[in-house]
Nucleic acid binder design. Structure first.
Lengths: 139, 139
DNA sequence: GCTATCCGTTACCTTTAGGAAAGCGACTAT
DNA sequence: ATAGTCGCTTTCCTAAAGGTAACGGATAGC
């Protein structure tokens, strides 16, 4: 260790600023979770996201989605269905975040097995849902 | 539409939990910043970190460092120097986070040039250090 | 004695994230 | 007419994050 691989200070400062931007945009309890769900399922409606992001309330979900849309990471599409539905999907720009999420998941898995050891019952308890919901099920 | 590239729900849930663990540990305004500085400089003392993490207060820095140490991402070493100094360095386990930070920085750079366009005055304002030719306009 | 440096801690306060619960507008099914 | 679904919004509230300022022990120099 103790590499001291000091790059140019200017470049380092630029990185710090970029990092702060990213943190400001993505920090919080839910955004990565929402994005991961969209990566996995492609397109999700409001209610799907509410169910897949276990524990989120509509108010918070609504706000998070607005934030993400403002930053051009997701698109919002209103479908004219019987009760109106709204679809959310990732923009091309959002693929830039995939490496972040993958790295984060990767770290989480390793950290969990390394530090925690126990399989975190509290979180399991929060996730009693079978998840897969057919997006267009006409009742 | 409706890509639904659904991997096994079990795997997806595992990822969500890992993601939530990682978020819980790393979220906040400062941790990534501290880690990036340690990546760049190798080993830093308390005061170095205070100066490189522009804007952080000793109280907050102290707490962040404790969190990181508890999670075995950094080591704390007390040197017996004239006024006591303390060195912080990354643990081997912390290299797992490097991809996260790199991806985050990468995203931040792209996002900054794509969405913001403008060079984020607020952050520049928070950085009274002779960064580039800093825009020091007195009103 | 007075001051300074380094690494914090303590006390206090403000801001924000986020949760709980209810409602609302448009529509439909019974 | 009533009740239900969907996608929110609104109001109210609490817990936590984070900032400000001052102080503390240890050590050293003047």
């Amino acid at each position: 260790m103790t590499v001291t691989c000091e790059q140019t200070p200017a470049l380092h400062k630029e990185k710090i600023l970029a990092l702060k931007d990213a943190i400001e945009l993505l920090s919080g309890k839910w955004k990565f979770c929402i994005l991961l769900n969209l990566y996995n399922y492609g397109t999700l409606r409001f209610k799907d996201l509410q169910e897949s992001s276990v524990g989120i309330t509509p108010k918070v979900l609504s706000k998070e989605l607005q934030d993400l849309e403002e930053n051009q990471l997701i698109t919002r599409t209103v479908n004219n269905t019987k009760p109106v539905t709204v679809s959310y999907a990732l923009t091309p720009h959002a693929i830039e975040i995939q490496p972040v999420i993958n790295a984060l998941v990767d770290f989480g898995l390793k950290h969990r097995s390394k530090i925690k050891g126990t399989p975190d019952q509290s979180d399991y308890a929060k996730c009693p849902i079978p998840l897969p919901s057919a997006p267009q099920d006409a009742k």
